[in-house]
C-alpha cells in the first residue's frame, strides 16, 4: 500500500466515528520501490492530498527524510520538494502491517500490500449518512 493510498482512506463510515481520519499506520514490512518521477503529476496531486496526514504517516514509519512538515512555498518550482513528495507518495510501499481507526481503534490488516477494510454490516452506520448526499 502506497502512502498516497493511505492518504485517501478514512474510517468515517464506521458506527460512532465522526472523522475517522487519518488512519494510524503501523508497518511491519516496508519495501522501497523505484517509480518513474513525473513532476507535473506531483504538482497537480499536492492540492488533493492532506499534507499533514502524509507527513505524519511518513514520520510514523520513519520515512520522512527530506520531507518538510508543511508544503513548500512556490512548490511548483521546487524540484527538491516535489521529488521528496514523489518518493513518499509512491515509492514507500507498505507490504504488511495495519491501519487503525483513530477513534474506535478498529484495526484493518495489511497483507501482501493490500489493506483489508471490509467490515461487518453491524459495524457501519445504518443509514450511511456519513457518506450520504
Amino acid at each position: 500500500m502506497k502512502l498516497l493510498t493511505h492518504n485517501v482512506l478514512s474510517s468515517k463510515c464506521l458506527k460512532g466515528v465522526s472523522v475517522g481520519y487519518p488512519l494510524r499506520l503501523n508497518a511491519t514490512d516496508i519495501k522501497v520501490v523505484d517509480v518513474d518521477y513525473n513532476s507535473e503529476f506531483v504538482q497537480r496531486m499536492i492540492p488533493k492530498i492532506n499534507y499533514s496526514a502524509l507527513y505524519d504517516a511518513a514520520q510514523s514509519i520513519g520515512h520522512h527524510n527530506g520531507l518538510p512538515d508543511t508544503v513548500a512555498e512556490d512548490y511548483e518550482h521546487n524540484e527538491e520538494f516535489l521529488k521528496a513528495v514523489h518518493h513518499v507518495l509512491l515509492e514507500v510501499d507498505i507490504v504488511s502491517g495495519d491501519l487503525e481507526c483513530p477513534e474506535s481503534g478498529r484495526k484493518f490488516p495489511i497483507t501482501r500490500g493490500i489493506p483489508n477494510m471490509l467490515v461487518n454490516e453491524n459495524e457501519v452506520n445504518e443509514i450511511n449518512d456519513s457518506n450520504g448526499y
Binding site: 502506497k2 485517501v8 482512506l9 478514512s10 493490500i114 471490509l118 456519513s130 457518506n131
Partner: peptide
C-alpha cells in the same frame, strides 16, 4: 503498471472529499 488495491465494500472507506 500499478493499481493500488484496497479490499472494501464499494467506496465505503474512501475519503468523501471530492477528490
Amino acid at each position: 503498471t500499478h493499481v493500488s488495491c484496497v479490499q472494501m465494500d464499494l467506496d465505503s472507506m474512501i475519503r468523501m472529499d471530492t477528490i
